[in-house]
Amino acid sequence: MYNPFSLKTKKILITGASSGIGQATAIECSKMGATVIITGRNKKRLNETFNKLEGDGHAQIVFDFENISGINDFINLIPCINGVVHCAGINDLTPFPFVNEKKLNKIFSTNFFTPVLITKEILKEKKLLKGGSVVFISSVSGPICSCSAGGLYSSTKGAIHGMAKGMALDLAVKKIRVNTVQPGNINTNIFKDGQLSKEQLQEDIKKYPLKRHGEPEEVAYAIIYLLSDASCWVTGSNLLIDGGFTLQ
């Protein structure tokens, strides 16, 4: 059957696959025929993702990238891949007067340094094949807007947004494409510690022309496009998946 978005014969590495966008991406990629290598910190939830994957040949690697020097060890565990999607990310709503070096280091480490350095090591070990695809999760927050107490998160996404463009230029010679997706507010666990109440989330929903927050699958579909051969002439771009939020 004709399908330009098929991921058959492709091996895709997905970080942050224990939950949220990473979990949805892993599952949807498997449905599109990809062999996926999923990684995350939480063994139980990563295994739940693994059990929902379609097809076989997939792999799961429980790994905590908190220690950045562990990245080298991790790369030895993965095969050659056609694509990588960096979904591991955290938020930390902190009013600016309380931003400090510790918070900056923590959020930048997870949201920026780790995905960038993982990509670098994958390339150094020649594990990303020619014609491959790198996808970062950017956000509307950062490159376009921010929110109350959102400076820490925004700054990491602004950084990723910029790095993706530089990387896209440098890797074009290898026919490796680098793109981002820019989600609005998505229904995931990122606020599971209750930083935002149900009422606050309901208030936020009113700001969306399409009158709801997004689902993780809706971001995964855009990622599938960027991983597939359909986007082989697309690099340095950003797919906006925001329910119309930034129109106003």
Partner: peptide
């Protein structure tokens, strides 16, 4: 408000 609430959380952590 929500900003003050987040500030309280941040102050207590600090």
């Amino acid at each position: 408000g929500s900003l003050v609430a987040l500030s309280v959380i941040a102050m207590v952590d600090d």
